[in-house]
Amino acid sequence: MPLDKSTPQMPDTTDEDRRRVLLAADPREAIGRCDPGDADLIMSDALAKMRAGRPVPPLMNAMDEARNWAAMASLFEIKAYALACYNAMPPKDQAAFLVYVSGRDTRGR
């Protein structure tokens, strides 16, 4: 896409940055003019194609497989699976998990 005088002025950006902004503007405008139901389908389909999908069963080490999957997953997927996994834990494991991720003991120690 050629950059010309109609290209938005964006100081401290590269031609590639400006090109990406221009490419993103057309679909955003088109989706914004769609019927909300159609827009939902279009965006859901696009997001589905960008996702890593569900994690595969671990072949060797579950933590290594989880790290590999998380490196490919979208932020939406990571949050969804993290919350679902947390909610599936027994309360004792939830407490231990919170201690681990927060770096402190939730019992006040």
Rank of each mutant, 00 (worst) to 15 (best):
R18H: 00
L98E: 15
T14L: 11
A25L: 08
N87T: 06
V56L: 09
D35P: 00
K79V: 10
P36L: 07
D45P: 07
Y81C: 08
D93M: 12
A30F: 01
D17P: 02
D93W: 12
L83S: 07
A30D: 04
R67S: 04
F97H: 09
A62I: 14
M60V: 11
R109C: 04
F97N: 14
G37T: 02
R107A: 11
M1T: 13
A24H: 02
D15F: 05
I31N: 01
G32Y: 00
I31P: 08
A70K: 04
R19H: 03
S102L: 14
L22E: 06
P11D: 00
A88H: 13
M1Y: 07
P90R: 10
L83K: 12
R20C: 11
P27M: 01
P36A: 04
A48M: 09
P55I: 08
E29Q: 12
R19M: 09
R28A: 14
M1R: 03
E16N: 08
R107T: 13
K92I: 15
A30Q: 02
K5Y: 11
R54C: 00
K5M: 14
D17M: 06
D45T: 09
D4L: 07
S102D: 04
A71P: 06
S74C: 01
D12E: 10
N87R: 06
V99N: 11
M10T: 00
K79Q: 15
A73N: 08
K49W: 04
L3F: 10
E29G: 04
M72Q: 12
D64V: 15
A84T: 15
L3Y: 02
S6P: 09
S102H: 12
N87P: 02
M1N: 15
D64Q: 11
T13R: 04
Q94H: 12
G53P: 10
V99W: 07
R67D: 02
L75R: 13
D64Y: 03
A96M: 15
M60G: 07
D12Q: 11
G32M: 01
T106L: 13
D38G: 00
A70T: 04
A24K: 02
M43W: 04
T13Y: 06
R33F: 01
A24T: 04
C34G: 00
K49P: 02
P11M: 01
V99E: 13
S74M: 09
A39N: 10
L75D: 14
A62Y: 01
A82I: 05
A84R: 07
W69S: 09
K79Y: 08
G103N: 11
W69Q: 09
